[in-house]
Amino acid sequence: MAIKSKPRIKAPSEAKAGEIIEIKTLISHEMESGQRKDSTGKTIPRAIINTFTASFNGKPFFEANWFTAVSANPYQAFFYKASESGEFTFTWKDDDGSEQTATAKLTVA
């Protein structure tokens, strides 16, 4: 199952240099585990988002590899040490090869 909705981000838009900020993300996805059977007894194939990446000004700083145990509609929270103004890019990679991205601006005073 492909990613079907816009991801949501909660991150501060401003920070002081050196401040460690928390970033929270959510995306809608069934995260089909490949462990379930349908009503005819056939195994439903695995279909999950397998990689989440966070970059700032093009430089990756955090990555999560998700396995089938990650819950549907995955939530991921993590941290970032602010140093300069710029833009976050968040990327979700699906088993089917599709990708979804979201961005957020950060101003460092």
Partner: peptide
């Protein structure tokens, strides 16, 4: 999880 010094904190939450 793969962290970098820029992560600031080696902490993360998932469900």
């Amino acid at each position: 999880y793969r962290f970098t010094p820029q992560s600031g904190k080696a902490a993360a939450s998932v469900r």
